[in-house]
Amino acid sequence: MRATFVASEVSSGLRRNLTMTLAVIITVAVSLGLFGASLLVRAQVTTMKDFWYDKVEVSIFLCSKGSDTPSCSGEAVTQAQRDQIKSDLESLRPLVQEIFYESKADAFKRFQEQFKNSPIADNVTEGALPESFRVKLSDPTSYEVVASAFAGRPGIEQVNDQRQILDKFFRLLGGLQLIALLIALSMLVVTVLLIVNTMRVAAFSRRRETGIMRLVGASNFYIQLPFLLEAAFSAGVGALLAIVGLIITKAVVIDQILAPSFQFTSFVGWDAVFAIAPIMFVTGILLAGLAAFFTLRKYLRV
């Protein structure tokens, strides 16, 4: 194997087919970029889930005088009921991680704090807001355990799970991410087809050389290697461009633009980028390999 000879064959092949080479590089970059972006969105959804699920809590609202829920029968919760609920919650440890009791006065204070610039605050009087237990679960998905244990019990007006609202939101994000992934996958298929076609054109335009190579007894490997290396080179460059795009997205779009404007949530870290980049690169090389597998067997046989 003569490395310099192969290298010169590859570079002349790439230059001869410059437009096709560029087309392959750009297509690989775009499709892999999209692929990487959809993986990044996925990582983002996971990050947000971790962030938000950690903060959500189950609220158990207790009856106030005049509540028309059947379990309240118009009466405020009694001290006995309150103590019973509290001790039942304690018995659910370790699923129940933390328990806060919020009295009517606390609820009013918090409400005033939250809406201090809003006229709503003026219309709400102390006593209008129910007292509640705020419960943090070690496993937020086990909300049902708490709901079934407490919903409808005497003294409890309502059991509320913030997680259900978040779930809707995350399902929406998950759907968007799936669509992005499907688009990316179809782009990857298009990319394979383009590489196949490019290799076919390259094989055709070099049929004279390859014909002579066959006749003088060059091995299959030697005949096919330049084509393989060309495809791998284009795919590799395209993949690197896509990775650069991903890094810019993280450094500029996420860190400089999104993160400062949306401070209520956290964004994917560099660890996600470092995990996704190699996947993109390997996928790019695999694309070229797949295309080569289809093409070379058919057009460059002994």
Binding site: R208, G211, I212, R214, L215, V216, G217, A218, N220, V302
Partner: peptide, 19 residues
């Protein structure tokens, strides 16, 4: 298949169109 190149190395070929 992989031995065919070895065979062809023992055979020279010349054509009407030079190639």
């Amino acid at each position: 298949n992989w031995k065919i190149p070895g065979l062809r190395r023992q055979i020279g070929t010349v054509f009407q169109d030079f190639r």
